[in-house]
Simulated scan of single mutants.
Amino acid sequence: MKVYLDDERTTPDGWTRTYWPEDTIALLKTGEVTHLSLDHDLGNDEHGTGYDVVLWIEEAVMTTGFIPPQEMRVHSANSSARQKMEAGIQSILRHLQKT
């Protein structure tokens, strides 16, 4: 399953759309997500951002052995948030290479 977290953009063909971090995390917990594309700003930062998903994956990988999607990317236009999210993804990948 390919999951696309975004509040405004058009969902690419073949992708499952989510609007909030908890919806994305629920799908990740199924173990069926192969590709993940994340936006940061989802219209209500108090409800969460795409970075919350990265943090959840990072913690799950390091504490429970969670296997993340084979492809994770960020499509946010927020450049500073994009860098932070991409750094989190790189941290996840470095941890996986060590194990």
Rank of each mutant, 00 (worst) to 15 (best):
S37R: 13
D6W: 02
T64M: 07
W15S: 10
E8L: 13
G48R: 09
T16H: 01
Q90L: 12
P21T: 07
T18S: 11
K2P: 06
W56H: 03
R94Y: 10
V61D: 09
A77R: 12
T63L: 11
H75D: 11
E46V: 00
S76Y: 04
E22K: 13
I25F: 07
D6N: 07
M85R: 08
G14M: 05
T49I: 07
T11N: 01
Y4V: 08
D52Y: 06
V53Q: 08
I89K: 07
P68S: 03
D41H: 13
G88D: 05
G31I: 09
I67N: 04
R82W: 09
L96F: 01
G43W: 10
P21W: 10
E8F: 09
L28V: 04
V54D: 05
R9A: 06
G43R: 07
M1K: 08
A77F: 09
I67K: 12
I25T: 12
E71P: 00
L93Y: 05
G50W: 01
Q97Y: 03
M85C: 10
G43C: 13
P68E: 05
T49R: 11
L42D: 02
A60L: 00
S79W: 08
E59W: 10
E58Q: 11
D52G: 15
R73M: 13
D39Y: 00
D41W: 12
V3S: 03
V54Y: 02
R82C: 02
L38S: 08
S91R: 15
T99G: 14
Q97L: 13
G50C: 01
S91W: 12
T63W: 02
V61P: 09
I25K: 11
T63A: 10
H47C: 04
T49K: 14
M72A: 00
I92P: 04
D6K: 04
I57S: 00
Q97P: 00
Q97F: 11
E59D: 15
P21N: 13
A26N: 10
L55G: 12
D13Y: 00
H75L: 06
T10K: 10
P68I: 01
E32P: 00
T49M: 10
E71A: 13
P21E: 08
V54G: 06
L55R: 15
S76M: 05
E46H: 01
S91T: 15
D7I: 01
L27G: 06
S37W: 01
M85G: 10
G14N: 09
G31V: 09
K98S: 03
N44V: 02
V74T: 11
M85I: 14
H40R: 04
P69K: 11
M85L: 12
L42P: 01
Y4H: 14
L28I: 07
L38Q: 06
P12F: 03
Q90D: 13
I92Y: 02
S80T: 12
K2I: 04
D45C: 00
W15V: 10
